[in-house]
Amino acid sequence: MKKIIAGIFAATIASSAFAASSEPQGVTREVHFGGLNLANAEGEAMLNERITRAVRQICGQRVFAPLQDAMAQRECYRKVFASARPQVELAVAKARSGNRYAGDPAVIAIAPTGGKGL
C-alpha cells in the first residue's frame, strides 16, 4: 500500500512539474530565415518547419501525458504559434511584394507570452 501511495505521489509531482513548465515564462526562440525564399511555397514551408521545431523546444513534446498536462501543452503551442503568425505573415508579404529592405531582420522571435514587441 505504501508503494502505491508513493507511486501516486511521485506521478502527481512529476505531472504538476510538467504543467508548471509547459508554458515557460520569458523563454524565447529566434527562428532565422535569411537563406529562405519566402516568395514561394517551399520557402514558406521550410520556415513553418523551423517554427514548429522551435515551438517544440519551448513547450516540449510529450507523447503520453495526463489530460491536464496535454491540455497545458496544447495551450502553450497555441500561444507560441500565435506569437509567430503575424511575423511570418509580414515576412512572406514583404518577400512576395519585393518590398524587403537591407535593414529588415531575417529572424522571427517566438514566445508563449507573445514574443518580443508584441
Score class of each variant (00 low, 15 high):
G115P: 00
T12H: 06
S22M: 10
I13N: 04
A109N: 00
T113H: 12
G43I: 10
E44D: 01
G7P: 02
E89R: 07
V55R: 05
S97R: 09
V80C: 00
A10P: 00
G60R: 08
R100V: 11
L47A: 11
V88D: 00
I4W: 04
S97W: 08
A102H: 07
S15H: 09
I108S: 04
I110H: 01
V27M: 13
R74N: 14
K3A: 13
G103W: 04
G98V: 10
S97G: 09
G60D: 07
R50E: 04
P112G: 06
Q87E: 06
G35I: 10
G26Y: 14
D104W: 07
V55F: 08
A84K: 05
M71H: 13
A11C: 04
A17W: 00
N99G: 06
I108C: 01
F9W: 09
E44I: 02
A11N: 06
N99S: 11
F64T: 13
P105R: 05
A111D: 13
R62Y: 11
G115C: 02
G26F: 15
E30M: 01
R96G: 03
V107S: 10
L38Q: 06
A11G: 08
G115F: 12
C59R: 01
L67Q: 15
A72V: 15
I13S: 09
R85W: 04
P66S: 15
F81G: 05
R85E: 14
